[in-house]
Each structure stands twice: as C-alpha cells, then as structure tokens.
Amino acid sequence: MSTDTFPDRPIDTRLKIAALWTATMLIFAYVDLFSLYRPDVRADLEAGKMFVFDVGQPFLFFTTLYVIIPALMIYLTLVMQRRVNRIVNVTLAAIYGLTILGGAAGEWNYYLLGSVVEVGLLAMVIRHAWTWPEAQPSR
C-alpha cells in the first residue's frame, strides 16, 4: 500500500506546452512594463518613437498582434489536433525565439535576462512539441 497521498502522474504534453506559453507571456508583460521605468524609453515614447518605429496605429496594431498570437497559443495548444499542434508550436516558438533574440541586442541587463528566459521557455516548447509521443502514457 502506498503512503503517498498524491502520487506523481504524467503531465499531458498539451498542458506542458500551454504552461510554457503562459510563462513566456508573463515575462513578456513584465519586461515590457519594467521598460517604462527607463528614462530613455519614456523619452522616446514622449517623442512618439519606439526604437526605430513611429508609435502610431500601425505600430500598436502589429505589436498587439505580436502579443495576441502567443496568448492564443495557450488555448490553441489545448484544443488543436496533435499533428497540427506540433507544427504550429515548433514554427511559432522558433519565430518568436528569433525575434526575441533580435530585439535583445544592445539592451539593458534586465531585458537580456528576460529574453534569455523567454528563449529558453520557447526552446522547451519546441522540444516538447518535437518529441510529443503518439499516445500519452496512461494515468
């Protein structure tokens, strides 16, 4: 008889990937919020700029779209068919990882740390999606 009241159970791959997207989104949000404490970022925003981009409707639209996609992946990972899920997760995680690395070039240490963690989480998304077994272990 087991004395373990709450035995470890295998965690479904969908849940692992959805949790990784969730963690990535939280870091996205906090790193961007912390940027508002930087005088250089605030000055650029007051001048209507963000990096080399003009802050206007197109910039805000595409920035919102950039954030919506991984936010939707939290849910979509739970409901898409396994084959499509794997392709979409590997593709999007790779694309986002590259854009995060590109955006981190020359940034402050807090931003670099957040970016490294985000890329690590996305690498784990790719790993879990790539190695997703045909059938989940029985519980």
Rank of each mutant, 00 (worst) to 15 (best):
L92R: 01
P133D: 05
L92M: 14
R127S: 12
I100W: 00
G120D: 10
L92A: 04
I126W: 01
A94H: 06
N109W: 13
V116Y: 14
V116I: 15
L92S: 02
L92T: 03
T91E: 07
L121A: 10
G103F: 02
G103E: 03
H128I: 07
I95M: 12
G103H: 05
G102S: 10
M124Y: 12
V125C: 06
T91R: 06
E107Q: 11
H128M: 10
G120S: 12
V119L: 09
G103S: 06
Y110M: 14
Y110K: 11
V119S: 01
T131Q: 15
W130R: 08
P137H: 06
V117A: 09
Y96Q: 03
L113C: 13
W130V: 01
L98M: 08
W132Y: 05
L121H: 10
A123R: 02
G120C: 07
A129D: 03
V125Y: 03
I100K: 00
V90I: 10
H128N: 14
A94K: 01
T131Y: 09
E134Q: 11
L92N: 02
P133K: 09
A129P: 01
A93E: 00
V117Q: 06
G103R: 01
V125R: 00
L113A: 15
Y96L: 07
E107K: 05
A129N: 04
Q136A: 14
V116R: 14
G120L: 08
A129F: 03
T99K: 06
T99G: 02
P133W: 09
A123N: 08
L122P: 02
H128Y: 13
I95Y: 06
Y111F: 14
L121K: 10
Y110T: 11
S138R: 14
L122N: 01
A94E: 05
W132N: 01
A104G: 13
N89T: 03
P133S: 07
M124D: 09
R127I: 09
L98A: 07
L121Q: 07
N109M: 15
L121V: 10
I100Y: 00
Y111G: 09
T131W: 08
W108H: 12
N89H: 03
T99D: 05
L92P: 00
L112E: 07
